[in-house]
Amino acid sequence: MDSDYLKNKHILLVDDEQELLDMVVSILKEEGFFNISAAKNRKEALSLASASKPDLAILDVMLPDGNGYQLMEQLRQDNEYPILFLTAHGEDEDKFKGFGLGADDYVVKPFLPKELIFRIMAILRRSYKEENPLVKLCDSEIDFDCAEVIKNGEHISLTAKEHDILAALYRNANRIVTIDALCEAAWGDNPFGYENSLMAHIRRIREKIETNPSRPVSLITVKGLGYKLMIK
């Protein structure tokens, strides 16, 4: 997936430990990000944020002059942008607290550079879509905004359920998405007993996106587990 357009996003980094800040900055720089502000406490973070609006904030939960949750609320007073927590608290309660207040994701220390970058890219991709993001498949293209598939120059519209299922597959493009997660995306919580309906929808999606629906190359079945959307 081409995500270079995300690399110029402004990232605000807040952690009370200088060495950790340095390390995260170096990880981000290595990945190609260059617009990075680093703050050691809440005050610095707020002044940096007001000087230049960040596109993503990475916050530590424990700060010398307050906690990260308060900082998140303050940062979001003026502008709505994604926030990722970086913390040494591995407990689930903290996780729920963070998400309850509207955090976008949560990375528990210690972490590998790859893990952090993966989460950051996922959040950025979700929050900042490319202009006219046509998703290129092997035999067709998907236009999520118009809910249609373009195959051989022909525009085929998607139903709401097909759109939801494809969107869920696209969010995890080239990776397996479980049957249960797809049912949840299409039918909401506790999606028990929709497996057969899902199969029917998948069949219809294939008719729209594949040249040969009985030998799919873009929407692949992983037996017993789920489906995978292969994009270019």
Binding site: L20, M23, V24, A88, V108, K109, P110, F111, L112
Partner: peptide, 10 residues
């Protein structure tokens, strides 16, 4: 966790 983050990260 924090010191180990540094070891792991670098």
């Amino acid at each position: 966790r924090t010191p180990l983050s540094m070891v792991m990260g670098y």
